[in-house]
Amino acid sequence: CHSECLGNCSQPDDPTKCVACRNFYLDGRCVETCPPPYYHFQDWRCVNFSFCQDLHHKCKNSRRQGCHQYVIHNNKCIPECPSGYTMNSSNLLCTPCLGPCPKVCHLLEGEKTIDSVTSAQELRGCTVINGSLIINIRGGNNLAAELEANLGLIEEISGYLKIRRSYALVSLSFFRKLRLIRGETLEIGNYSFYALDNQNLRQLWDWSKHNLTITQGKLFFHYNPKLCLSEIHKMEEVSGTKGRQERNDIALKTNGDQASCENELLKFSYIRTSFDKILLRWEPYWPPDFRDLLGFMLFYKEAPYQNVTEFDGQDACGSNSWTVVDIDPPLRSNDPKSQNHPGWLMRGLKPWTQYAIFVKTLVTFSDERRTYGAKSDIIYVQTDATNPSVPLDPISVSNSSSQIILKWKPPSDPNGNITHYLVFWERQAEDSELFELDYCLKGLKLPSRTWSPPFESEDSQKHNQSEYEDSAGECCSCPKTDSQILKELEESSFRKTFEDYLHNVVFVPRKT
């Protein structure tokens, strides 16, 4: 048989008469490798580009789960590009990614509803959504962080984005990388972005840091009482949809009607710091009717980097990364020049730590249904340095008659930039024990000054392991946590139920 035959053949030295091919099969003959313009397919066939392209389009058009959109890589027609490569849609070739590779997620039936953290986790790592997304989240724990972890990498949506009755959302900033909504599939009414009845939605994105392009379709905003109209108009300008909307697409009466839409800028007039305090004062603000001013709200939190936005980490279910302080308005003076500047002394802060701070007014709604208010920009203030805590785990070892090696770990709280350490030492008198000992005694162990690591005695271990207080009263049991108490109650309830079950099964009433 021919060298490319495997198993047997019907005619000697003829690659077209093989029972099976050793390498690849091409047009009725066995070959060692697939010549151009053919590609290896499933490690035994040679196919042309049209064959591989037909497989790709067949799966793409069917949208069946589990099928493969075949691509070409290293002269092979394979189910998908290997790690580190992405497909070129024009020629199906796998090309190296520039940075992290995109991950295209194809949605069944063309859309997916995100109504819980669990459903959001199914899209973790996706960068391109081939379909439409509907966000409908009523509640949950730590929602802002969970949504950002699972949806934060999405850069492109081919269909539309719909935010509907998501009472738990305060902001859409968890879509931190969303840059493009194509609108290839539109919501009824030709809408590519749809926001309806979101009672706590206050911000779409921080438009000073976020760009969003909507290729096709219109915007729809109705019944978002805490979303200011200025935020919607800003989205029109940034996304390129200005002029597409009709009169009733953006409701003037049901958007922002319960919001404090600040239209003035508060400026800080005085800032002073110490290692654990920050004193702030800002310019006074009074609405047209000074009785509408209820006070100020001061927001602050630790910020290692200057990239904080107002609604980071917030949701309507209680999660809030900001510390909020309510401040009463100052006494009002008739003389504008003698107006008191409101302020606040922030206490209990960490030394040498940068804080993000902003302040906003708290006002009631005027009778004319106009909203007044003022808010400052987010500023960054760093507390002063102070003395560091003591170095940890000092170790001293003498390696000769004239040297001592000293080692330690950095302090747990540096409280500033540590530039150097101060080492103090003092000579001590020799131990009298060394002169009084009889060095001729056998088995004498000389006193040693070398360091030995501390260890816990058996008594201390027994005390720590004991669940009861000892007789001397030195140790006591740790208080039980809520989960331990709940577990004990469940076990007790189970024992009672099981005992009742045994009584009912074992003891049967005697027939009379």
Rank of each mutant, 00 (worst) to 15 (best):
V104R: 02
C105K: 04
L107K: 03
E109H: 15
E111G: 11
E111S: 10
T113V: 05
I114L: 08
D115A: 07
S116Y: 04
S119Y: 11
S119W: 04
S119P: 06
S119C: 09
A120I: 11
A120T: 06
Q121I: 03
Q121T: 05
E122F: 03
L123D: 00
L123W: 05
T127R: 13
T127Q: 06
I129S: 01
N130G: 15
N130K: 09
G131C: 02
S132D: 07
S132N: 08
L133M: 08
I134K: 02
I134D: 02
N136S: 04
R138E: 06
G139Q: 05
G139P: 01
G140M: 03
G140K: 13
G140E: 11
N142M: 15
N142Y: 06
A145S: 08
N150Y: 03
N150K: 10
L151Q: 00
L151I: 06
L153R: 11
E156K: 07
E156A: 08
S158G: 05
S158F: 12
G159E: 00
K162W: 06
K162Q: 06
R164H: 11
S166L: 05
S166V: 05
L169Y: 12
V170C: 12
S171A: 06
L172Y: 02
L172N: 02
S173N: 10
F174A: 13
F175V: 09
F175M: 08
L178Q: 01
R179A: 08
L180Q: 12
L180G: 08
L180P: 00
E184I: 09
E184R: 10
E184M: 03
E184L: 11
T185W: 05
T185C: 09
T185Q: 12
E187C: 05
E187V: 06
I188A: 02
G189I: 03
G189A: 08
S192D: 00
F193T: 03
Y194M: 12
N198S: 06
L201D: 01
L201W: 01
L204C: 13
W205V: 04
W205S: 04
W205F: 11
D206H: 05
S208Y: 12
H210L: 09
T213G: 08
G217Q: 12
G217T: 00
L219G: 07
F220N: 07
F220G: 11
F220Y: 03
F221T: 04
H222A: 08
H222Y: 08
K226W: 06
L229V: 15
S230H: 02
I232T: 10
H233K: 13
H233G: 04
M235I: 15
E236C: 07
E236V: 13
E236L: 12
R244Q: 07
E246L: 06
R247S: 08
N248Q: 07
N248Y: 06
D249L: 10
A251P: 13
L252Q: 03
L252R: 12
K253A: 12
T254H: 13
N255Y: 05
G256Y: 06
A259H: 14
A259I: 15
S260T: 08
C261H: 03
E262G: 06
E262V: 06
N263C: 05
E264S: 04
L266N: 02
L266F: 06
K267A: 08
F268Y: 12
F268S: 02
T273W: 08
S274Q: 05
K277I: 15
W282G: 01
E283N: 14
P284R: 15
W286G: 06
W286K: 11
W286C: 05
P287H: 04
D289I: 01
F290A: 04
R291Y: 02
R291M: 02
D292I: 04
L293T: 03
L294E: 05
L294G: 05
M297V: 12
L298I: 07
F299Q: 14
F299Y: 15
Y300G: 02
K301M: 11
E302P: 12
E302S: 11
P304G: 11
P304K: 03
Q306T: 11
F311S: 13
G313N: 12
G313A: 07
D315V: 10
D315I: 03
C317N: 02
C317Q: 02
C317K: 01
S319T: 05
N320F: 15
N320P: 08
S321V: 14
S321K: 10
S321I: 07
W322R: 00
V324C: 02
V324W: 11
V324M: 10
D326L: 02
P329S: 07
L331G: 14
R332T: 10
S333L: 10
N334H: 07
K337A: 10
K337W: 14
S338L: 08
N340Q: 08
N340A: 14
H341P: 14
H341G: 13
W344M: 03
R347T: 06
K350T: 08
Q354H: 08
Q354T: 14
Y355M: 02
T361I: 12
T361W: 04
L362I: 13
V363P: 09
D367Y: 12
E368F: 14
R369E: 04
R369Q: 14
T371A: 10
T371V: 12
Y372R: 02
G373V: 04
A374L: 05
K375V: 03
V381Q: 08
Q382T: 13
Q382K: 09
T383G: 00
V390I: 09
P391R: 01
P391S: 00
L392I: 14
D393L: 15
N399L: 13
N399A: 14
S400T: 09
I404C: 15
I405S: 15
L406F: 15
L406M: 05
K407T: 04
K407A: 00
